[in-house]
Design a protein around this nucleic acid. Structure first.
Lengths: 201, 201
DNA sequence: CGTATTGTTGAGTGAGATCAAAACCAGTGG
DNA sequence: CCACTGGTTTTGATCTCACTCAACAATACG
């Protein structure tokens, strides 16, 4: 059983960088998320993790995880849910990167980030603070940063989003959702909302 | 209703098909694989599954899984391991599709399939039976089937693989492994081998 | 056999990459 | 308040890898 990191504040991302410099961001980690902390310490062969902002988090040791799970079915369920949620996001990424074009892919990413942030009350209405540079977004979407810039520009020109410094706003959520194709992959329910909220604290 | 599926014999694949027909294969399911333990927590699966050959499998109902896990730590550990393994494969897919070119991606796929089959003793030395059509391989790699055909042709012309009907052989494993870049993502250990072997039965 | 599915090959095209330069922005220090 | 610096974003021009279209070959199958 692994230890776990519970993120309270701040963003990070997990990524894999190849020897020649190519990098793929596997996913973003934000408040309410749980993840394996060993990556902070040990450069695992698989992937590594990097903070985007200052992070506040708590560590749960393996023994404690086991203890928590066996004692409280509620927490066990929450952990299990978090796991399943993460997997659903990962599957969506595979589909997005494998079969959506740049326009759809960037729309999906916007939708995912906004949705996940709303889940933990970190979205300010239609807007949210975006700490990641476009280079990192590109590495998450499997695109070049130049093309990400162009695509975001297009979405803005079309009136679907608006950007001001680090704050991005979803102007036409319905359209973004529709373009992204995979919005329903993130099946958010009132229950999941409550669970994630609790984990955030 | 959803339940866990334990595959004993045969291949299947999980995929997501978009409304316009574009399809992404999320992963292949082969003997020893369990899918999908998390489906109990999710309201509805965001993907569907399809058999490639006749399948032999056993179904485990949600209640029974819970029961098994709480009673036998051994089974709990095995489930946990299977989960982690599946995630590692999924992460590798994201990286492969996002950042590898067609040549590397196909090499990776070959490596992954061969490695996973060896894990459950279903590889005949350097060869294995490949039940999936190139169209399905293409949908797994995020490529067109035409390009998959060309790429396999190239690998064969270069003497790295050989194909005879449905049997594919890895002639130069070291090269394939090297080209795929992500071979070490599948961290196989003697332990994992044993666990997978047991699950196969 | 004939028919359907799958695989191969060639030609032309296009979405997104790469290259390069300019514009912008946040600090930092004078 | 301004100039200087390094990072980020934008824009234009060009190129390339993989896609599409189309025809044909091979294999599987009733």
């Amino acid at each position: 059983m692994h230890a776990a990191v519970l993120v309270h504040e701040g963003w990070a991302f997990r990524h894999r960088t190849l020897t020649d410099g190519r990098r793929q961001v596997i996913d973003f980690v934000m408040p309410g998320d749980i993840c394996d902390p060993t990556v902070f310490v040990m450069p695992r062969a698989d992937f590594s993790m990097q903070a985007l902002t200052t992070l506040s988090y708590s560590l749960v040791r393996p023994e404690d995880v086991l203890d928590l799970v066996t004692r409280s079915p509620r927490i066990g369920a929450a952990l299990w849910w978090a796991e399943a949620y993460e997997e659903a996001i990962n599957r969506a990424h595979v589909v997005a990167i494998g079969r959506l074009n740049a326009y759809e892919r960037v729309a999906y990413l916007l939708w995912e980030l906004w949705t996940r942030l709303r889940l933990v009350d970190l979205a300010d209405g239609d807007g949210f603070v975006m700490p990641a540079s476009q280079e990192i977004v590109a590495d998450a979407a499997g695109l070049s940063y130049v093309h990400v810039s162009r695509t975001l520009g297009r979405l803005e020109r079309e009136g679907l989003i608006r950007r001001l410094k680090k704050t991005w706003r979803i102007i036409d959520a319905a359209r973004i959702r529709q373009i992204s194709q995979l919005a329903d992959n993130l099946h958010i329910t009132p229950l999941s909302r409550k669970i994630q909220q609790r984990l955030k604290q």
